[in-house]
Write a protein that binds this DNA or RNA. Structure first.
Lengths: 154, 154
DNA sequence: TTGTTGCCCATGTACTCCCATGATATCCCC
DNA sequence: GGGGATATCATGGGAGTACATGGGCAACAA
């Protein structure tokens, strides 16, 4: 599970350190999948598991379904695997950097099953925009019943 | 279940002892999840169970639901797992401390499924503000029918 | 050549883990 | 009930290690 946020620097070789806790969430994988977000100005990333989940979801759609082709084009077609160097860094290619507007520094944001990479000030702006909505949505969390098999009290 | 309040000190390394009763409520877990409160000037904390409940609640929402993204950003993006040292302490990072205004001492407040960490005088102020509301709300407790299968006493 | 890409080593800092101490509470035996 | 031994707990400090980051060098492409 990808948790919390980290800021790190992008060097002149376009290398960036994937935060150590994120690398640990990838449990042993030596690379990470990256793709430009479809609806936001950021890069998204995840491990093999989520990628395979996407693949399976697409397989459920009819071969001739144009939505399947659209998804395949924008997910599979845009995604790339980036391998870690021995310091836990990856290289972000120019296209990804440009789409997210990242130059010198990058903010990594954990979202549970995936993470995002933002230009730091763009991230702050997006976050401020979402603050009110998050507050209003808190009730959705509390409404969740306890999962089956668990006792009612500690 | 997290019950009652405790005050402890924050040392120069930003370490703080999690009250022993709270650690016992975490039954064996070697770390605790912390995040800044969305609507109050304090830190909130809980065990793995609540965090997984959040995850499940979010998974129930549509992938494209903006509320899902807002929650993920503010819960997953802000939460961090803090590991206990062998004395039962954790390190509070500078950002959490700043948001709660905590410097030298911290008040832990049990809230059942989670707990909060306050700057002691801020906690007292909040408490005083809520005193009247709590008084007025006492009737809600008495109006509640006893749950089936529970003994009459305790 | 010039620029790019992958792989390696170097370094300082910050953090994690470990041990030590004193205070308080608990228990048991007398 | 008194007194001492033991356990639990909060807190202080130190040393090793993991981490982020910078730079070098060779292989390869343009």
């Amino acid at each position: 599970m990808f948790l919390s946020s980290f800021e790190s620097s992008v060097d002149f070789k376009k290398r960036v350190s994937i935060p150590a806790p994120f690398r640990k969430s990838l449990s042993g994988e030596d690379s990470v999948y990256l793709w430009p977000s479809l609806d936001k100005a950021c890069i998204e990333g995840a491990g093999q598991r989520l990628m395979e989940g996407f693949e399976d979801s697409m397989a459920d759609l009819d071969l001739m379904d144009p939505r399947r082709y659209a998804l395949a084009t924008y997910i599979m077609g845009e995604a790339r695997a980036a391998k870690f160097d021995d310091g836990g860094r990856i290289v972000l290619d120019a296209e990804l950097l440009a789409k997210a507007g990242i130059t010198e520094r990058a903010t990594f944001v954990g979202l549970g099953d995936r993470f995002q990479i933002w230009e730091p000030s763009a991230f702050e702006a997006m976050r401020e925009q979402n603050r009110q909505l998050a507050l209003e949505s808190l009730g959705l969390l509390k409404a969740k019943p306890r999962r089956a098999g668990q006792a009612a009290a500690e």
